[in-house]
Nucleic acid binder design. Structure first.
Lengths: 206, 206, 206, 206
DNA sequence: GATGAATGAGGGTTCATTCAT
DNA sequence: CATGAATGAACCCTCATTCAT
C-alpha cells in the first residue's frame, strides 16, 4: 500500500549557509537527495537514505535542513532558478529579434530543461503542489510567466496573460512525453512544441 | 514531513459485489474516500480515516477492498470508465459530421469531466502513475487514444498517432487550470482548448 | 512474521449436541477443520476458512462451538479418544499373552495412529500444550498411561510408573520421523520402536 | 482464541553488531524476548511487548532485528550454538575413551542443556519448524548429528545413521519430562536416558 | 559541529466473535 | 436456527526527528 504522512512542514533551510564548508555540505546533501530521487523515486526518498548516500550523518543533515521537506523544497528551488536563468538568457540573446525566433529560443530552453531533469521533474512538481512552498518560488514562477507575457506583448499578441499561461501549460504537457520518447528526439519534440505554440497563437478559431 | 511507503500492491476489489447491500457498502466507502481525497489530499488518505468517514469499521472496508491501493485503483477506474463512456457517447452523436464539430464535442466531453472532478483528478492521476494499474485501465486509456486517432484519420490528418497523443496532452494540460479559473468559465476554457487543438492540427509551421 | 494472539479460551463445545442434524453439523465442521489443518497448517486455521470449507456460515459454526479453540480441542479429543480405544482394543486381544506380543501390539497400535494422522498430530499436540485442555482429556491420557503401567506390572517390571512414561515418550519421539520416512516403512519403524522399548525395559545399565 | 499469521519472513539480524553499545542492545532485546517467552509463551511474544520489557522503543528493536521472526531465529541460533559447542566440548574430553563413557558425556551435555532451557526449548523448537531457518542452523543440526554418528561408528555400531537419529530423538523426548520432574533429578534423568540409549543400541530384538 | 542511536506516533491489515435480519 | 456483514482490538513495521555523547 501507499502511505503518506504529514506533520508540520518547514520548508526553509535552517540557516543560510555562507561558509565554504557548509556550502559543500549542503551541496553534497542535495546531490545525494537528487540521486535517490532519480534512482528510487519518492518511495525511498527518506532522510536516512539521503544522509547515507551523502556520506553524512542524519544529524548533520538536520543541521542544514530543518526537515525533509526543506530538502525537497530546495531541490525544487534549484531547478526553478536554473530554469528561470535559462529563460532570461534565452531572452537576452540579441541575435534573434523576430517573434518566431525568440519564441523558438524560449521553447528550446524549456525543452532542454525537461530533457536534463526528465527523471525527477515530475516528482518535484508533485512535491511542489503538496508542499507549502515559499514565496520566492512563487515569485520565480511569476517571473517566468512575465517573461512570456512580455514576449507576447512585445509582438502585439492579445490577451497575453492568458495566452502565456496556456502555452506554458502546453509546453509543459508536451515535454512530459520525454521519458518515453527518449532524449534523442530533441529535434522532433521541439518541432511539435512549436507547432502547438504557434498553432495556438496564430489561430483564433472559434 | 512527507512519508511515502510501499509494499505489495493489490488493486482489484476483493469481491465483485452484486447484492444491494454490498453495492451500498462499496459505494459508501468510495464516496468517503473521495471526500477525504478532496478535503485532505493524499496526506490523510488512510484506511482508518476512510472507514471512519464512511461510518464503517476498518474491517468492513477490508471486506470489500483488499488494500488501500485497491480503493484508489477503483476510484481511478470509475473516473476512467465514465470518461471513456462520455467520449464514446460524444462520438456517436450523429448530428455532427464535420471535423470541427466532432472534435469540439470530444473536447467538451473531456472538459466537462475535468470540471466535475477538478479537485481530485490530479491526485488520482498521480496515484495512477505510482500504482501497478490493472490491464483494464491500460485498455481504457488505449481506447480513448484510439477514439481520437480514429477521428483524426477519418478526416485525413497525417501522423494521427502522434497528433492524438499531443492534443490529448494539450487538453489535459489546459484543463488543469480549472481549479484556478473556477467552473464558471466553461465556455472560455472550451474556446481556449479548441484554439490550441485546431491550432496544432491546422498548423504545420516548422 | 508470526503472530499469535490470545483472548479468553473456551474449549468446551457450546452444547452437547444430540440431534442427528446437530451431530452432522458438528462432524462437518470438524472434518473441514481437519482438512484445513492438513493442507494449510495453523497459518490458515481460522474460523472463516473452516466455515467456508464446511459449507456453513460462521454463525452456525459458533452455534456449535463456543470458540475457535473449542474446535481445536474437539479435534484433539477425537484423536485421543480413537487412540485410547485402539490401545484398549489391542490390550483386550486375548490371542496374545506373553509380554513381547502384548507390547508389540500396543506399539503397533500407537504407530498406526501416528501414520494415520501424520500430517496433523504435531500441530494438534502443540495446540494441546497451549490450550487449557479439559479434564476429560487429562483423564484419557491418564488412562493410556495406566494401560501401559498395567501391562508392565502384569509382567513384573519394576518402577512401572516411570518406565511407562518413558517408553511412551520414546515411542512418541520415534513416530515423529514418520513424515520424513513415509508411510511405507511401517515394518521398519515398528522394529526400531520395539528395539527402543525392549532395549529400555530389559536394560538396567547404570 | 489463538491466532497465527504469516508474511514474508526475515530471520537474519539486521546488522552484525560489533560496537559494545550495539551488542548490549542486542543482548538486552534477546533477554527481554527470552523472558517474555518464558513467562507468557508465544501468545504475548510481540515486538511491542519485547521492546517494552527491554526498556527500549520498538524503533530501536527494529534497528537491530529486521523482524519479529529474526528475534526468534536468533534465540534459536543462540541455543543451538551453545548446544553444539557443548557437544563438541564433551567429545573432546580425552579422559574418557570407552564407548559408554563417551556416550554418557554426550547424554549429560544434552541433558544439561535441556535443564537450563527447560521453559523455552519447546517453544523455540516449534518456532524453528515454522520459520524458514537459515542454512547455518541446518548446518549446526547436521553437525550435531554427525558427532553422534561419528561416535557410533568409532565403536563399530551398525546403521550408525539411523541409530543416531533415533537416540537423539529418544534423548530429546525424555528430556521433555524435565519441566514436570524439576531440575533436581538430574541424576535420575541421566540414568533413564542412558538406559534408553544403551538399551536401544545393545538390543537387536526383533 | 558532527554523530547515529533512540524515539514513538502513525498506518496497513487480520480475524475471532457478535448480532441484526 | 442460520446467515454473513460488521466490528475493532491487536500487532507489525517505518521513518522523520531529537539529543546525549
Amino acid at each position: 500500500m501507499t502511505k503518506v504522512r504529514t506533520r508540520k512542514r518547514v520548508t526553509k533551510p535552517r540557516k543560510i549557509p555562507r561558509q565554504p564548508r557548509s556550502n559543500l555540505m549542503v551541496a553534497t546533501i542535495l546531490e545525494a537527495a537528487m540521486i535517490i530521487l532519480k534512482k528510487h523515486g519518492m518511495g525511498n526518498f527518506n532522510t536516512n537514505a539521503i544522509a547515507e548516500k551523502a556520506g553524512v550523518s542524519v544529524g548533520s543533515l538536520y543541521q542544514y535542513f530543518p526537515s525533509k521537506d526543506a530538502i525537497l523544497a530546495t531541490l525544487i528551488r534549484q531547478i526553478r532558478e536554473e530554469m528561470l536563468a535559462d529563460m532570461i538568457a534565452s531572452t537576452e540573446r540579441k541575435d534573434l529579434g523576430d517573434f518566431r525566433s525568440e519564441t523558438r529560443a524560449l521553447i528550446e530552453a524549456t525543452l532542454q530543461h525537461h530533457v536534463k531533469y526528465a527523471d525527477v521533474i515530475t516528482l518535484l512538481e508533485r512535491a511542489e503542489d503538496d508542499l507549502p512552498m515559499d514565496d520566492d518560488i512563487q515569485e520565480m514562477k511569476q517571473k517566468m510567466l512575465e517573461i512570456v507575457i512580455a514576449l507576447l506583448q512585445r509582438h502585439g499578441i492579445e490577451n497575453a496573460n492568458i495566452v502565456a499561461n496556456d502555452i506554458i501549460a502546453i509546453c509543459h504537457a508536451l515535454s512530459l512525453s520525454i521519458p518515453q520518447s527518449g532524449e534523442s528526439n530533441f529535434e522532433e519534440l521541439s518541432r511539435r512544441m512549436q507547432r502547438a505554440v504557434f498553432g495556438y497563437i496564430e489561430n483564433s478559431t472559434p
